[in-house]
């Protein structure tokens, strides 16, 4: 078919469309995150200190960092649905850098502990909850990532690998946030190692799986 015929066919097929609104994608992702948090609370219950509205400092910090990382990466992921050359959207990278301060702090504290020879606090190195963390967080991330992918399929992401990383990062951060509302651990080592590994796992899964789902 010639280009002229193609143009005629496309013009004949024209119908009004509503411009894509990334804010709707962000709202959908946040709604899925709220739903995931609610499901975790209903099924597994809230931490006692959170229920009493007096959370431990480590819980406040981890929840805020995960929420900021989730929001920043969701925002970047939904913006990626609109093709554009030469426009960077790197707020998520700063949020990720901020979130990485937790494993960095855990590493520094661990080194100090080793250096001083002092005894670790009770529960500091209790990693028995790790399978629950992985299971609950990734299940919640699946719900959130699914919503984001569904929305992205209606858009036109042109950098599929980047979109995959961002979807994985956003869903992993929100999924881990949902788990953290239940997680009884107050250990900075646990948060630094297991939470970071969970978010990283979700990001890698996003990179591997999402591009195939949003290719157009």
């Amino acid at each position: 078919m010639s280009v002229e015929r193609t143009i005629e066919a496309l013009v004949a097929d024209l119908a009004p469309v509503t411009p894509l609104r990334p804010r709707r994608g962000l709202a959908l992702t946040l709604a899925a995150a709220v739903l995931a948090c609610s499901a975790v609370i209903v099924v597994f219950g809230l931490r006692d200190d959170v229920r009493a509205l007096a959370p431990e400092p480590v819980v406040i910090i981890r929840c805020l960092l995960l929420a900021v990382l989730g929001c920043a990466s969701s925002h970047a992921a939904t913006q990626a649905a609109r093709p554009m050359v030469g426009r960077a959207n790197n707020g998520w990278a700063w949020a990720l850098a901020a979130a990485l301060t937790v494993p960095a702090a855990a590493l520094l504290l661990f080194m100090r502990l080793m250096w001083s020879g002092a005894a670790a606090g009770p529960g500091d190195f209790d990693f028995s909850l790790t399978p629950w963390c992985f299971g609950i967080s990734t299940s919640a991330a699946l719900l959130i990532g699914g919503a984001l992918v569904l929305w992205l399929r209606g858009g036109a992401p042109t950098n599929l690998a980047r979109a995959g990383w961002l979807v994985g990062l956003a869903s992993g951060a929100f999924g881990t946030l949902a788990y953290s509302l239940h997680c009884p651990s107050n250990s900075i080592y646990y948060v630094g190692l297991v939470y970071s590994a969970t978010v990283a796992l979700c990001a890698v899964l996003g990179r591997l799986v999402v591009p195939r789902l949003i290719r157009w």
Binding site: T18, P19, L20, A81, R82, V85, A156, T158
Partner: peptide, 23 residues
């Protein structure tokens, strides 16, 4: 052109057109 047609909703009228087309 066919992709432009299929994904025309992804253009934001408040932004420049050619960077969108180039992408």
């Amino acid at each position: 052109l066919a992709s432009l047609h299929a994904k025309r909703a992804s253009f934001d009228p408040a932004r420049p057109f050619l960077p969108w087309l180039a992408a």
